[in-house]
Write a protein that binds this DNA or RNA. Structure first.
Lengths: 216, 216
DNA sequence: GCGTAACCTTACGTGCGAGTAGGTATGCTG
DNA sequence: CAGCATACCTACTCGCACGTAAGGTTACGC
């Protein structure tokens, strides 16, 4: 009814690119603290300091918005990891740097990580997106293990490698989750612990040592 | 308007205890394939071959229903694991039996596992429930490691143990997830693979071998 | 200085699904 | 066979939050 007495515009007009980033920032914050379902577009708009129709105009529906968040965060993360692990280093060095980058990223973007890891798993539409990223990670790790194996003249079935890689990635994700919930924990230390478990375990495997189930 | 010509009752009347189980079965199925949000009470009722008000009468609101599913499935799982690992066996035997029981459970209740692991993580109300179960598991594993350590006269800070245990549990959960998505995979084999990574890694750690980050 | 395009708003339509009111049938107990 | 408790149903209300229509305002090009 009353069309706001245009006293002071209160908020500045900004170019689209900027606003989009602000919206994504807000979306990640809200999604991470409410979960996908409980997060309302109104709250996201509010948190971004903008009104709802703008969000729809720029980023589309709620699902599309969430996917956009997913894309940005996964891209950032993969970039961080890829940038850290030079491909011509020895395997343990590569693994270490990858882990350090990963936990560093999670530590610095705890909200983003919560969105990625916790929300996206359940609902069908997003699971695929996330699974794709995990598949890339698993592929990288498996490739690393394979490389190290061949260097020692050994060879292992592909499935075997993949499952081991999957376990390592899973353990890292899980510790990442732990890290996201413990604001005081140090990413570097967490990475070291993970490296201990991963490398000593994998190292043994690479060395040809295996554990066999007992008869019983 | 038309109050169903009572030709044949079509479906039998059953005592409450039975119906409750049927409803929980249906709920687990539907939650696992749709996710918590997308699952509708109508569909659950339908799947259970009963009408919606019965679900409300017996199990309460949607959230309460989900929590009931969580309770039942976690109880079953903990029971399966606890029943397998006799406390007086050597550490590797206990770990092996625990893992085998765990993957056996997941293989036999893939739907239940999906509900537990995927859906409950995100939304606030349920996360606590799930976290409690994981905490128990982590506690058990950490205790096992600690026991094995003391037997060898060594000792490690509690946090350290807990984080290692957390990583192992996380890796197992992750492989469990992988198993739930691969109907043809054998639980036993998956357990063996997990055991390889876990025990060789943990074994090294127990033996006093550790990996240290390089200077750089 | 004026048009036009992009930015931004308030205020609403709408559908879906959680939860309920009120009534009917059926078996068990005496 | 009365009576009562319990199993069970159809058919509704209603609120919430997604998504949008229609219009106001600022900046920038010419």
């Amino acid at each position: 009814m009353l069309t706001r007495v245009s006293s002071t515009p209160t908020f500045k007009r900004l170019p689209r690119a900027i606003r989009e980033q602000q919206m994504l920032d807000a979306a990640v914050r809200v999604f991470s603290r409410r979960g996908f379902h409980a997060a309302s577009m109104d709250e996201i708009a509010d948190d971004a300091g903008i009104s709802k129709p703008m969000v729809y105009a720029y980023l589309g529906t709620k699902e599309e918005l969430f996917v956009a968040c997913l894309h940005r965060e996964t891209a950032r993360m993969m970039e961080a990891i890829a940038g850290a692990a030079a491909p011509d280093l020895p395997a343990d060095q590569r693994l270490w740097r990858g882990l350090r980058a990963f936990f560093g990223f999670v530590g610095a973007h705890r909200d983003g990580w919560k969105v990625l890891y916790r929300q996206a798993r359940g609902s069908q539409p997003f699971a695929a997106e996330l699974a794709a990223m995990r598949a890339r990670l698993v592929g990288v790790v498996a490739g690393m293990l394979d490389h190290a194996l061949r260097a020692e003249g050994r060879e292992v079935a592909e499935t075997e490698l993949e499952v081991v890689a999957y376990a390592l990635v899973g353990a890292s994700e899980s510790l990442g989750d732990w890290l996201a919930d413990h604001p005081d924990a140090e990413p570097e230390k967490t990475a070291t612990r993970m490296m201990n478990v991963a490398w000593l375990g994998a190292g043994q495997l690479l060395g040809g040592v295996t554990w066999r189930p007992p008869a019983n």
